[in-house]
Computed example of a mutant assay.
Amino acid sequence: MRKLLIFSTVLLTLISMLYSCQTAEKVEQDAYYVNGRDIYIAQCQNCHGEKGEGLAELSPPITDTVWMKKNRSLLACIIKHGYATPVTIHGKVYEGKMPDFNMADIDLTQIIVYVTNTFGHKQGKYTTEQVAKDLQNCK
């Protein structure tokens, strides 16, 4: 009985260790997500809302998964340089101007990781290299 108890304890410990191990990439992604959430709260939440719902007629929601996927490569440009082009989200046109937020590439990366993996989105990893590439393509 005692051997069974020891064996069970060791087995449960090994199983929990396997499930708790994360890759360095996953740990980095999680850190970006948390830091991005903090940036979102400080810089974006006033206009785009706590749940990404937007602000009445002024700021569009960021909950449209199709729009977010289609425009993912524009997000760094939009955040860094602002945006004045009308946007249609969930069939509604928003014509307000988004101000620019002259953020470092790492901050842009973190906020993009957060907004593309929250509010119903599951777009996964985004890197500072991708942000740099996307910023080179800004119009």
Results as ranks from 00 to 15, higher is better:
residue 126 Y to H: 14
residue 72 R to D: 09
residue 118 T to F: 01
residue 37 R to Y: 13
residue 55 L to F: 08
residue 112 I to G: 12
residue 68 M to P: 00
residue 29 Q to S: 04
residue 113 V to K: 04
residue 9 T to W: 00
residue 23 T to P: 00
residue 69 K to S: 12
residue 73 S to C: 08
residue 78 I to S: 13
residue 102 N to A: 07
residue 70 K to Y: 14
residue 86 P to Y: 06
residue 86 P to E: 05
residue 79 I to P: 10
residue 74 L to W: 10
residue 21 C to I: 01
residue 102 N to E: 10
residue 119 F to W: 02
residue 54 G to Y: 05
residue 25 E to W: 00
residue 73 S to E: 15
residue 57 E to R: 05
residue 2 R to F: 13
residue 10 V to M: 01
residue 105 D to R: 01
residue 92 K to N: 07
residue 86 P to F: 08
residue 105 D to F: 00
residue 113 V to N: 05
residue 61 P to N: 09
residue 106 I to K: 07
residue 38 D to E: 12
residue 48 H to I: 13
residue 11 L to R: 02
residue 92 K to C: 04
residue 92 K to A: 10
residue 16 S to D: 10
residue 139 K to C: 01
residue 60 P to W: 03
residue 75 L to A: 15
residue 29 Q to I: 00
residue 34 V to F: 09
residue 34 V to I: 11
residue 44 C to H: 06
residue 112 I to Y: 05
residue 103 M to S: 07
residue 125 K to R: 09
residue 103 M to L: 15
residue 24 A to I: 05
residue 87 V to D: 07
residue 17 M to A: 13
residue 100 D to M: 14
residue 122 K to N: 15
residue 38 D to R: 12
residue 91 G to V: 10
residue 74 L to I: 11
residue 31 A to T: 03
residue 32 Y to T: 06
residue 51 K to C: 04
residue 135 L to H: 05
residue 126 Y to L: 07
residue 48 H to L: 12
residue 121 H to N: 06
residue 138 C to R: 02
residue 87 V to T: 12
residue 13 T to A: 15
residue 126 Y to W: 14
residue 121 H to Y: 03
residue 13 T to Q: 02
residue 131 V to Y: 01
residue 8 S to T: 06
residue 67 W to R: 04
residue 33 Y to D: 01
residue 76 A to T: 13
residue 1 M to A: 11
residue 4 L to H: 01
residue 110 Q to G: 04
residue 53 E to A: 10
residue 110 Q to P: 01
residue 66 V to L: 08
residue 63 T to K: 13
residue 97 K to V: 08
residue 100 D to K: 14
residue 102 N to C: 00
